[in-house]
Simulated assay, not measured.
Amino acid sequence: MILKKLVTLNAGDVIVTPDGGQPVKMGQGDLVTFPAGMSCMWEITSDVKKHYFFD
């Protein structure tokens, strides 16, 4: 079963590009929800520390 993922970025910066979508910049303090089944590429622009939860 594929689950939704909730991510809090505690440090660092990334650019997330969903398959077929536009790049989105994210960084320290951002809270992001990735829907079930989403496929994307992470470009890490500075070292990342994250906390995540699958729902």
Results as ranks from 00 to 15, higher is better:
49 K>A: 13
33 T>K: 05
53 F>G: 08
14 V>N: 01
27 G>P: 12
8 T>V: 13
53 F>P: 00
51 H>V: 10
26 M>R: 10
55 D>N: 07
53 F>H: 09
34 F>R: 03
27 G>D: 08
16 V>D: 01
43 E>P: 00
5 K>P: 03
17 T>W: 09
9 L>W: 07
33 T>E: 13
24 V>Q: 12
36 A>L: 05
4 K>W: 00
51 H>F: 07
8 T>D: 12
20 G>Q: 04
2 I>C: 01
9 L>G: 02
13 D>T: 15
11 A>I: 00
47 D>E: 14
54 F>I: 06
43 E>W: 00
40 C>E: 09
15 I>Y: 08
35 P>Q: 03
12 G>L: 06
15 I>H: 01
10 N>R: 13
7 V>T: 15
47 D>A: 14
42 W>F: 14
24 V>N: 03
21 G>M: 01
40 C>R: 11
10 N>A: 11
49 K>S: 13
50 K>I: 03
4 K>E: 15
46 S>F: 07
12 G>P: 06
44 I>G: 11
31 L>N: 13
42 W>A: 10
3 L>N: 11
14 V>Y: 04
19 D>K: 10
49 K>C: 05
36 A>G: 07
41 M>C: 04
35 P>T: 08
43 E>F: 04
29 G>C: 07
33 T>Q: 05
37 G>Y: 10
27 G>Q: 08
40 C>F: 15
31 L>Q: 12
15 I>A: 05
5 K>T: 14
46 S>D: 09
27 G>M: 10
5 K>R: 15
48 V>H: 11
50 K>R: 13
20 G>I: 08
14 V>R: 09
11 A>W: 01
38 M>G: 04
48 V>E: 11
14 V>M: 15
24 V>G: 04
16 V>T: 11
6 L>E: 13
37 G>F: 10
46 S>Y: 12
12 G>K: 03
30 D>V: 02
26 M>T: 04
8 T>F: 08
40 C>H: 15
1 M>T: 04
20 G>H: 04
1 M>K: 05
17 T>K: 10
5 K>Y: 02
30 D>I: 05
46 S>R: 05
14 V>D: 01
39 S>R: 14
44 I>Q: 12
38 M>P: 00
